[in-house]
Each structure stands twice: as C-alpha cells, then as structure tokens.
Amino acid sequence: MSVPQHKIVKPRSQRGRRFLEAREPKIFENDKTALGLRTSSANETVVKILKDLTALKKPDSSFLGRKHDLRPFENEQQLESFSTKYDASLIVTGSHNKKRPCCITFARTFDHHILDMYEFCVENFKSISDFPGLSPPLGNKPFLIFRGDSFEHDPVHEKIKTMLIDYFRGPSVDKIRPAGIQHCITFVATGGRILMRTFLINGPPEGTEPTTKTPIATLVPTGPSMDFIPKRTKTASNDLWKVACRTPKTSTIKKKKNVTQDVFGSTLGRIHMGTQDYTKLVTKKMKGLKESRSKEDGEGSVAEPMDVGQANDDYADIGGDLD
C-alpha cells in the first residue's frame, strides 16, 4: 500500500488540512459528486445531453466544457485522473462519431479507480430547454421509477440500474417533505432500449392547507428525455464489487442497554450496584460510641454501624449525562 503524499508532506494551512481531510474515506459517506466531461469529438447534441445530465445532479455536479481528448474504454486512466482531481466518483462523458453517434458513457469509480462503465447511444433526445418554464427543481430528491423485466433478469441491465440509481437518486436525506416532491425520473426497458423520461409532479397548489391525505398526482413531461441504446460495457469483477459494496460495522448503530427515556424527555440509566460493605461505612462520630483508650480493659464498646436506610435505588436520574 502506497502512502498518500499528503501524509508525508503536511498541509501548510489549516484550510488545506481540512480540504484533504474532507476527501479522506469516511464511514458515513458524502453524496457522490458527478463530473460532466466534454470530449473533443462531442457535437452540439452531446454537449447538451451532458449539460442536462449534470444539471439534474446539481449541486453535486459540475460540467467541464473544454475539449478533452478522452477515450474511456481505451484509456481508463484519463477518467481516473479526473476523478482524483475533482474528487468525483461519477463521470459522464460523451462523444460523437460515425460508428457510435451521440455516445454517452456513464462511469463510476471506487477509490478513484474505475469500477464500471456503461456506454449508450442516445436517440430521441429532448433537452430541458425544449420545455420552457418546466425546468426540474434544483437539489430536489426525485422519484425514480424502473419498469421492465430486463432490469431484474439481465445482469448488465441490473448493473445499469444501480448506476442510474447512483447517479439520479439525489441527496441522501433522513426526512423529506412529501408535499415538496416535484420531480420524477423514469426508466423503461423495452426492445433493447432504456427510455429515460423526466416528469414534473403536479400536486395540489402551494399554499393550501397541508393535508395528510395522499394527493392525486398528475405528471407533466419535461426534459431531459432520451432513449439509451446500450453499447460497450465494463463491469466490475465480483470481488471488487463486493469490496465496494461492503458496509462498515460501525454504521449499524448498536442499541444501548440500560438507557431509557421517560415521558418528559429526560434520560434514565439503570445502574447495577454490588452489595455494599457496611463494615467500611463511615458514620457520624458520637462520644458514646467511642472506643476506650485501653482496649485490654474490654470495657469500650465497638462502634456499630448505624441504620443506613435504603442504600441503592434501582433508578438514578442522571439527566443528560447519557445520550
């Protein structure tokens, strides 16, 4: 295992240190960032597709519009260097030539190395700009719908499905406002194609009384929509896939024993005590119980423990000490 350079040469500023720390592997990972890369052979449509795909992933994406000389399936290192530089684990790139017109490649990296890549030729493309006033909301977590049997049976389509989920699922959140769901991305696999269609969900108009009843949804088609025709693929080996899908043990939070919360929200802890040794108890000194100076006389009475009452309660309110 090679030592990362920033471990050897210390970052000079705190800001630089924080920057590098943010890029280190984490137990609870950040949302994946996507990179749209224009290639030198990309035509206008391909550039539009790339821009639209990165727009759907905003703010976790950026589009690099220079003419990069990229051949993802011939040279993986080019993409890997971009992944390392921009700390992006999802890459979309596109090219256009006679053999593969309007060719879009989705690539995914694990530890800045290519995990899998899927190449599609795109047909029937409609851009976001073709639907004026209906642009998809920024940073909104969309509904994802997959339709078709090949997503369940075809091993390549299964992997393509995980790729598409990975790319389009939006920010990972704990809570969501159901009334705020406005966006739906659908993938239908029919006849060797994957139809990507995007819709806006029209619920009840904003500002009305929030109801817990499920609203009736109407879908309005919007962009981008296109037909993907799968071409070349590069899937991960089973071993690598397993390593990449491993879940850390610490992320499954263990249930804490003996800690409860009452109705008022204060934390209660159950403490188990051993039996108390009464002989070592320090009690109040009293004249009458004093030992006589000369023990040989045997007249002095030995101090006896006093009644200590209830010594241990089962519950002790320990306030906010335990979380």
Binding site: E24, S89, R108, D174, A244
Partner: peptide
C-alpha cells in the same frame, strides 16, 4: 425516510 435497501457501491473504501 427509512434506510435505503438497494445496495450501492461506496465511493471510497471503509476507513
């Protein structure tokens, strides 16, 4: 939201 059930690959290895 409940936890996602679809297994997706991580971005980086487990630290």
């Amino acid at each position: 939201l409940p936890k996602p059930t679809t297994f997706l690959p991580r971005e980086k290895p487990i630290p």
